[in-house]
Design a protein around this nucleic acid. Structure first.
Lengths: 223, 223
DNA sequence: TATATAATTTAGTTATGCCTAAAATAAATT
DNA sequence: AATTTATTTTAGGCATAACTAAATTATATA
């Protein structure tokens, strides 16, 4: 049986290697808010369990076994987020924190029952894909909102789930996954986005926009 | 914040002091399957947090604060058992084990939402009373099945929840809380009970009967 | 290529938490 | 009063997981 800390390391390595292959000790340590030496220590432990591949000074990657564990935890987390929201009405800015504790504790049986209750969903309340029980992650091709230009319309696909204040802010504009909006203006010099959401205007700063990913992007004017 | 072990000690002290006032170190250690010295150590820690009252060689009792913690954990446990059973269909012989892990982890918010979903229930799937959010335990006056005599009819009120094999056995006779039955015969010399459950006969041994508590007991013949 | 800088690892330390065996002490029993 | 039983203290073990400081290795720069 793995400790909670070990599971968190595996989950983090998975997320980091998604965007950049091998994960350096420093990046991993920063992500987990520990010192690099601490990360080295856990990497050694995970390596001894054949959950990661590691060569000194060359970064870590997950083995198939390590990846399976990581995806299992991520699946727990995202199913829990959706379940808490749909079945118990926990608001979307609160599910992350709750799931963070529960993900390490629920049984495979409860996981399967939540999955069935939810109708075998493929995305959590923030739009993140839910791996299936075999660890297969639904394909997604989302575009960063910061890539949008004047006049383009699109649909919110995914938002970062780790900052509940940000989520409340987005909720106040109805910017949930599935919500359509159109870019009215992108202010120059990396300025904010003015957008139209079902007739309501909203101004979204760069830093906020970086946490929003969209799909179904359609140009309105040819730029 | 309390550790899981500390919470388990408080829960155990509560349960033991229900039937016998002060709890001796030895009884507590045996209940938790640790050595007496370990129990002494944890008692000292709990005492330093003003959660228990303890005089050397005289046993422990909970303070009001300690009792509040114990009841909170017990409330979590029993609400979870009922929730897992009703909302997710987890069979009654599996809910205890699952709740044992979750009880230490769920938030007050989730507790309240489960409570509301379940309609503010007063008993878990095994018939154990669920303390309300203020720590008030519903009154129960259950009779041990071993007190029954020939011809008496009654209704199952509560069964021990810590042995899932036993629960499956009881389930095979439909002996759930709420199920009525009548004693056909009590074999002499502390022998087994033959009972009638909705027309079906079943033989229940002494050791099993010790784990069953009933109410609505009505004599059929005057013995 | 030499040197400076950055990243990583090693080694040793600290802290927590919970456990145990053995010895000492207190209480109960004969 | 002596003995048995129960409890507590003492001293120490083990696991986890973090940290600092120093040494090592890799990479960038002059």
């Amino acid at each position: 049986m793995l400790t909670q800390a070990a599971e968190d390391y595996l989950k983090s390595i998975y997320k980091l290697q998604e965007k950049g292959g091998k994960v350096s000790t420093g990046i991993l340590a920063e992500f987990l808010d520990v010192k690099p030496a601490s990360a080295t220590g856990m990497i050694k432990k995970l390596k001894s369990m054949n959950l990661v591949i590691h060569q000194r000074y060359q970064g870590v990657t997950l083995t198939d076994a390590g990846k399976a564990v990581a995806l299992e935890i991520i699946r727990h987390h995202r199913l829990l987020e959706l379940y808490l929201n749909k079945a118990l009405g926990v608001p979307w800015d609160g599910v992350h924190e709750e799931a963070e504790k529960l993900e390490h504790v629920i049984s495979e049986d409860v996981e399967a029952r939540m999955d069935e209750f939810l109708g075998y969903p493929t995305a959590d309340p923030h739009g993140s894909p839910i791996p299936d029980k075999n660890g297969v992650v639904p394909e997604t091709q989302f575009v960063p909102m910061t890539d949008l230009q004047n006049g383009q319309s699109c649909v919110v696909a995914e938002v970062s789930d780790n900052d509940s204040a940000l989520l409340r802010h987005l909720g106040s504009f109805n910017l949930y996954p599935g919500t359509a909006f159109r870019v009215i203006e992108v202010a120059p010099f990396d300025g904010p986005f003015t957008i139209d959401i079902a007739g309501q205007q909203a101004v979204i700063g760069r830093e906020v926009a970086k946490n929003i990913f969209v799909n179904n992007v359609e140009p309105i004017d040819t730029v």
